[in-house]
Design a protein around this nucleic acid. Structure first.
Length: 887
RNA sequence: GGGCGGUUAGCUCAGCUGGGAGAGCGUCGGCCUUACAAGCCGAAUGUCAUAGGUUCGAUCCCUGUACCGCCCACCA
């Protein structure tokens, strides 16, 4: 492949395919855990946030994967042994829903198949489609170790789940209890608090009148759910509410039901809201449930698990849906005069985060984890810095959630998931919680039934950082790679997942699951809206890859990945950054026209040209800054720094400056240029590789006499302090200043680009020598015919002029130049410099500035003032000269 | 109600520990200059939301205000 001419434009599809295959077949990213275990400090590890098996790649994944990949590739370059574990999550509800929908298309329900057959169907589905998302991740160039791919329902991970459940049970941290839970009547399962979403709704607030038992009057309560009144077991008022002082302790009779219920007093009641009286329905409202516990109230459940009115409701309502029942209740209450007012009301309705069905608070028997003790450890680990959250602004959110945490409901009434390892003996009632499926009870009976429920998906995800490494076995992976170095994720699962991994890691590994957590942005559409299928504003990463190439997408996402800020993405941006990828490609194409492997070995000491010294210095700065930026997760800065260096410095200046040498006759200079060019190009490829792996790898493989196929395992370029050269930077500024001044004159005075200009510079000593030495470069870059530098140069009649670093520069344009235009141009320059000079002068005139500001700042300002004054004086002279011609 | 973030060039956004603002895209003008027209050269553009405060000096630090966005809790 070496030394072939590159195609004129970069064609990503072919390139990406080839290198993806190469990396996979060579197992380039598979570390040797046994070896790595011997020196854990040299290791680096990340576990991928496992996408749902049902998932399809979206921009959030693309960003997430890109950032992780950058870190992994970067750390390999820095000599780390890197493990990046890929895998997927079984995603209980989501996956079950998908398969149920498929069944429904065949006219079947899961109940028709039965549990075992249904689960088999889900596994079949998983085998067929579950790998899709992983292939999509692969296409992003993720340098994961495919030999260690995991699934949350793998045998090993299931073993870990069971181990954790049973030991938490043994530690008294898992318990079963009757509790009010968020119940999805469609999914038929309990949901954790954070699986509930709130949606605004237009409702009606009904005022209901309950008569006092002693006939002394009424209390009026307000509710948006009148049907739940059938389950009321109290009415509450505020203890200090004067209106109701004498009612507390009395009883009211519940209309339609006839139940006698107490009036209680509790500060929870808001006196301002509605009538100040609150109906208490412990079985169907979270707050009421708490109140019921506090006051020892009965919880009368009137709605069942399907959302239908049950037998506790008066006969007339039984079997109705809650909504239908509400209509009927409203009619009936109206009829008996208990409904005294209706008003439109906007509130929020709880929804299932999976299917958006309204949540019904529901009392049932569920399994819980006592998370308080775990949460305290998780909090402490961030407080004392064992884990660092980036950016730190998320600490507060994290603490706040942990501080207010309630027990975690972990049972789900689904079939797809880790079945709860609890058996009940049907003969003696013994409850067995076991790591191995028991065959018999202690009483000898084999008549055991396993708990029907499965565990919350997040229960297994919480173990991901160590379960994927083989825990509870003592593996080399755990020894080498736990705790992991970094977790990269979106803030939307900070609670669901990150906090719970912290808890479980600390509990079972006695160590944090990761040293750093990087919370990345949310990818939104160009208007800042969340991308969603229903809004139709989704940008499909795979389509973007097909259209613009993976590197374009990766570079775009990286450029916008500023910490703590959302990304507004549009296709135009990706298209824009494709230009950059193509620019690199073409720069390489140019370079490879001149580099064939015969050039001398790179030796900075042998490079005497200013532009070589300059670019090598700039390269040193880039190396240093780029590494610091990646290490500090300042991805946007890293990408933009690279962009600026490659385009503005390497291409715009360096490549242009070596052209005279490459096309020239001086063989020594040519060889030096080719050697340096090859060196700089090679190092750029290495530095850029973590962000844009494909184009860099492809170019790398075409650079002659390099280790052609190994860019992904190539170390980061070593620092070369001998190349640092501030003098070169200052000299280069001078050279650039002269070139830009001439270009500016040409452009502003409308001189045709074809006309070569002659340039005179009034300069003596070093400056004169410098200009003479760089005539070739100036000639080439500014289209200058002849350059004359001398201390006694006098401006010829009819010329344009400029001042560069104190030197007056003249471009004779007799007969060509429009003096009015030149005058205007000089005036513009004068205006600028005058403004700047005035500002500095004023500042220096301020006594308190001079006396109070640090010395170096004052010195800097003084130097500026001198420089500005010099330039201004020179410009004024030039202007006067031109004025003579005009006048 | 509690918390967090944002407000900088026409657009999208950088600006790390205070020393009078940058990039990309877009715009305008000129170029098919043998790596690249997906390009090259040149140019224009900002009371850094607002009112105060601290300071010799504030886009940056503090306080208040307005508007936008998000998270948590939730008034039935």
């Amino acid at each position: 492949m070496a030394n072939e001419t590159l195609s004129k434009g970069y064609e990503p599809a072919d390139v990406e395919g080839r290198w993806l295959d190469y990396w996979k077949s060579h197992q380039s990213f598979t570390p040797d855990a046994a070896k790595a275990a011997a020196h854990p400090k040299d290791n680096y590890s990340i576990v991928i946030p496992p996408p749902n098996v049902t998932g399809a790649l979206h921009m959030g994944h693309a960003l997430n994967i890109t950032l992780q990949d950058i870190m992994c590739r970067f750390m390999r370059q820095h000599g780390k042994t890197v493990l990046w574990v890929p895998g997927t999550d079984h995603a209980g509800i989501a996956t079950q829903n998908v398969v149920e929908r498929k069944l429904l298309a065949e006219g079947k329900r899961r109940e028709d198949l039965g549990r075992e057959a249904f689960i088999e169907r889900v596994w079949e589905w998983k085998e067929d489609y579950g790998g899709r998302i992983l292939n999509q991740i692969r296409r992003l160039g993720a340098s994961v170790d495919w030999t260690r791919e995991r699934f949350t329902m793998d045998e090993g991970l299931s073993k870990a789940v069971r181990e954790v459940f049973v030991s938490l049970y043994e530690q008294g941290l898992v318990y079963r209890g009757k509790y009010i839970v968020n119940w999805c009547t469609r999914c038929h399962t309990a949901l954790a608090d954070d699986e509930v979403e709130y949606a605004p709704a237009k409702s009606t607030l009904y005022h209901l009148r309950y008569p006092l038992e002693d006939g002394s009057g009424f209390v009026t309560v307000a509710t948006v759910r009148p049907e739940t009144m059938l389950g009321d077991t109290a009415v509450a008022v505020h203890p200090e509410d004067e209106r109701y002082q004498d009612m507390v302790g009395k009883f009211v009779i519940l209309p339609l039901v006839g139940r006698r219920i107490p009036v209680i007093a509790d500060a929870y009641v808001d006196r301002e809201f509605g009538t100040g009286c609150l109906k208490i329905t412990p079985a169907h409202d979270m707050n009421d449930w708490e109140m019921g516990r506090k006051f020892g109230l009965e919880a009368v459940s009137v709605i069942d698990d399907k959302g239908l009115m049950n037998d506790n409701a008066p006969e007339a309502y039984r079997g109705l849906t809650a909504a239908k029942c509400r209509e009927r209740i409203v009619e009936d209450l109206k009829a008996c005069g208990a409904l005294v007012a209706e008003e439109p009301y906007e509130n929020k309705v709880n929804q299932c985060y999976r299917c958006k069905t309204t949540i019904e608070p529901f009392v049932s028997e569920q399994w819980f984890v006592s998370v308080k003790p775990l949460a305290e450890k998780a909090r402490a680990a961030v407080e004392d810095g064992r884990t660092t959250i980036w950016p730190a602004q998320w600490n507060k959110t994290y603490y706040n959630w942990l501080d207010n945490i309630r027990d975690w409901c972990i049972s789900r009434q689904l079939w797809w998931g880790h079945r709860i390892p609890v058996w009940t003996c049907r003969d003696c009632g013994e409850v067995i919680v076991a790591r191995q499926d028991p065959t018999a009870c202690t009483c000898g009976s084999a008549n055991l039934t396993q708990d029907e429920d499965v565990l919350d998906t997040w229960f297994s995800s919480a173990l991901w950082p160590f379960s994927t490494m083989g825990w509870p076995e003592k593996t080399h992976e755990l020894a080498a790679f736990y705790p992991t170095s970094l977790l990269v994720t979106g803030f939307d699962i900070l609670f669901f997942w990150v906090a719970r991994m912290m808890m479980m890691g600390l509990q079972f590994m006695d160590n944090v699951p990761f040293k750093d957590v990087y919370i990345h942005a949310l990818v939104r559409d160009e208007h800042g809206k969340k991308m969603s299928k229903s809004t139709g504003n989704v940008i499909d990463p795979l389509q973007m890859i097909d259209k613009y190439g993976c590197d374009s997408l990766r570079f775009t996402l990286t450029s916008f990945a500023a910490m703590g800020r959302d990304i507004k993405l549009s296709e135009a941006r990706i298209e824009g950054y494709r230009h950059f990828i193509n620019k690199i490609w073409n720069a390489a194409r140019f370079a490879l026209m001149h580099v064939d492997g015969s050039e001398p070995e790179f030796d900075p000491a042998a490079l005497t040209g200013l532009h070589h010294k300059w670019i090598l210095h700039r390269l040193e700065v880039l190396k240093k800054e780029h590494a610091a930026q990646i290490e500090g997760y300042r991805f946007n800065e890293a990408a933009q720094g690279l962009y600026g260096f490659v385009w503005r410095e390497f291409c715009d200046w360096y490549l242009e400056l070596i052209k005279p040498e490459l096309y020239g006759e001086d063989q020594a200079a040519k060889a030096a240029a080719r050697s340096c060019l090859k060196h700089v190009l090679s190092e750029i490829m290495v530095i850029a590789h973590p962000i844009i792996p494909f184009v860099t790898q492809e170019i790398w493989s075409c650079i002659p006499s390099l280790d052609a196929e190994s860019l992904s395992v190539r170390p980061y370029p070593k620092a070369r302090p001998e190349c640092e050269n501030e003098t070169a930077v200052r000299d280069m500024e001078f050279l650039q200043g002269v070139i830009v001044a001439v270009r500016n004159i040409r452009a502003e005075l409308g001189v045709a680009p074809g006309i070569a200009l002659n340039v005179l510079v009034r300069a003596g000593g070093e400056d004169q020598a410098f200009l003479a030495a760089h005539e070739t470069e100036i000639a080439a870059l500014a289209r200058v015919g002849s350059l004359t530098a001398a201390p006694d140069i006098e401006p010829p009649k009819g010329c344009a002029s400029a001042v560069v670093r104190g030197c007056e520069l003249f471009v004779p344009l007799a007969g060509v130049v429009d003096f009015e235009a030149e005058l205007a141009r000089l005036d513009k320059e004068l205006g600028k410099i005058t403004k700047e000079l005035d500002f500095v002068t004023k500042k220096l005139g301020n006594e308190s500035f001079v006396s109070k500001a640090p010395e170096d700042v004052v010195a800097k300002e003084k130097a500026k003032a001198a420089e500005f004054a010099e330039k201004k004086a020179a410009l004024e002279q030039l202007r006067a000269k031109v004025q003579e011609f005009v006048g």
